[in-house]
Design a protein around this nucleic acid. Sequence first.
DNA 1: AACACCTTGAT
DNA 2: TCAAGGTGT
Length: 488
Amino acid sequence: MPHTTLVWFRQDLRLADHPALTHAVDRSDAVVPVFIWAPEEAGGWPPGGAHRWWLHRSLQALDRSLRDKGSRLMLRHGPSLETLRTLIEETGAGAVCWHTGYEPALRERDARIRDALREDGTEVRTFEGRLLHDVDGVRTGSGGPYQVYTPFWRKLGGLDLPVEAPLPVPRMGETKAPAAWPDSLPVEAFGLTPVAQDGVDWAGGFDGTPGEAAAHERLQAFIDHSLIDYPDRRNRPDVDGSSRLSPHLHHGELSPRQVWHAVQDWIRNRPMKDAAEVFLKEIVWREFAYHLLHHFPHTPAEPLKDTFAAFPWEDDADGLDRWQRGQTGYPIVDAGMRQLWQTGWMHNRVRMIVASFLTKDLLIPWQRGAEWFWDTLVDGDLASNTMGWQWAAGCGADAQPFFRIFNPVSQGERYDPDGAYVRRWVPELADLPTNYIHQPWTAPHDVLRRAGVELGTTYPRPIVDHGQARDRALAAYETVRQRSKGEA
DNA sequence: AACACCTTGAT
DNA sequence: TCAAGGTGT
């Protein structure tokens, strides 16, 4: 039994259901929790701005929880291997443990660190703390990875997927503290909170409460009040029926095992399997995203379907800028992009609409959209972001067929029928009557005047005509479609 | 090898 | 009603 064990926290900023921490507490006299800030090791995907804002607060929350237990979180600035070695020397630790990561660059880094530490004579133990399934253990009949969701879901067992019970918070107590705590940086030293520019604080309106306690409150509130209506309300950005667990899951304040068991408990108490199944399928979509990232590690940058490597995308800098700023002239698109910028989060239905608009209406490469989301989402997750964008662009696993091009007007009318979502995020349109809220350019002059809207001045005219843009996208698709046929 | 199937749509 | 074509068994 090693005298002291380092627990290397990464995307698992919680105390409950933390196999690495539990192992360390069970198996050593002293436990030293550590978080290392080393963004340059992320292989071109360092945490984005909004993500860092969340991380800052989540680290504070974790440190508070640890202090309540007589422990504390050691904060250090990378590189990771050298930092761990320094901490081992300072604390006399004989072992290090952590949870497996799945981002390609971090996976390689972790393997290198594991080998180096073992050569030093340090015991290294890694645990599964992020997923419900074993990414190497789930294979198709022919031994390959899945590329279609439904067979993947069935293979896991659907609702009958066996999920181990989550672990309780380990009993730490003062007895597990080291004789002396090493030095730790203040979290402010990482510079994670965006600096206000021109008197405007970007993060001032960010949404959600980081930390393990808030994550559990959110989960319980969702199960108690929203789960039963989830199938109907999850697509409505105006009524907010989604779980909003994504940032908590991404940062590991909550584990998918905890979510799974909480929902299964809810099912047991009432015969409402269907609503729960729709939600748990979303949790398994997250598993699928990790399955894909693990087996196709090139996909954050390159399309999964290689015929799309030759797709005639257009690098339209002005179009990208207007999309990012929510100035496309399509209200549902602009509402989504402004919600994202102001709160660090966007409703999933709207994520699909804005992604379709960028890739189909503007023909801008999906990678530009993925990069923007990466920088602006508090839940930015390499696996989910990559899968989502490739799905929307039509070049990914189980993608929507390319010719399914979202119509931003009909999508707005269907999922924001009263225009409440648009009015909230595009306030310059707030006084427009509902029948014009999703297509202000069709409103008569006097209606616009009464609503205080002057197209081209207070709100932009559409930057593309959707009908023409749709034809252009289909023609562009035709070029790679012919190519793939010719090669076959 | 044949066959069923495939998250979220548009006209 | 239409829109391809691949995936997985």
